[in-house]
Amino acid sequence: MTTTPTSTVPAPVPAKQPAARPVTVRRKWTEHGLVFIAPFFLTYALFLLWPLVSGIGMSLRSDNITGEGGEFVGFDNYAEALQDPNVWSSLWNTIWFTILSTVPLVLTGLVMALLSHHLRFVQWLWRLSWFAPFLLPSGVIGLLFLWVIYPSDFGFADQLLAWFGLHPGIGWLTDERYAMLSIVLATVWWTVGFNFLLYLAALQSIPQHLYEAAELDGAGAWHRLRHITIPMLRRTTGVVLVLQILASLKIFDQVYIMTGGGPDDSTRPILQYVYQSGFTGYRIGYASAVSYLFFALIVIVSLVQLRLSQRKGESA
């Protein structure tokens, strides 16, 4: 900001108004910087803003997937969506997944960060191995995990358990009691690396002298963790929580690959229902309406979290 010619040139000669004129023109040109952001902005407008707006338009129409026919139906699609039990059940699946996955994802990330922060040998190995799965695309994770837990009874996981004399006979993905848990398990393994990384960075930025002072006062390891580390991580925890909840609400890929939403729709997230309404059912208008209801929910969650984290920031 401060190194642009516009801000440095006029400073030494503030009195010479006429000479400053061409500078003023240049200042406007660069200050708005429209030219510089144009490539990004155009892409953004074309692929994010426009679809957002046209999606709202579609949700008010009875369009089919071919984009022809259809008529303006006002809020009929929304009214139908609110009465559709599939919307509610799949929305609940999404929320249930978010609850189930957020807690272990945050806690495991923290524990792993603490471990690798304190382990003094081959640190790079812990960091690499805990972060590596995050670099893989969801498709790869889904397939890998399928091969770990599938087929039941003679998949990799079951063989490993059999080693310890355990034969749980769990239908990892075929039993509605376990299918969602299996997906959570895969997701935790996949994405915990990101939370781990955020926590690790935060841990490294806690000033060492706090610990030294506490140690002089005779604080043990538990008290140092309880009264220094965790309070100092509060802001990071806020960020991790926000990001995690938003990421978990967007669940789709793993479920689509691993269970297809089954058994008996017990793992079908709302986004998959949107997909099914639009691409299997050809009702793009209705699918848009459902997705905007979900969008509203995400906006509300984000606003609540923003408010909460702001308050936290003020009091800290």
């Binding site: 022809e68 559709d84 009702r283």
Partner: peptide
């Protein structure tokens, strides 16, 4: 019943 209540998305559309 829900499927029956839903108009045919490809067939009924205009023209």
């Amino acid at each position: 019943r829900k499927l029956l209540d839903t108009p045919d998305p490809l067939g009924s559309a205009g023209g």
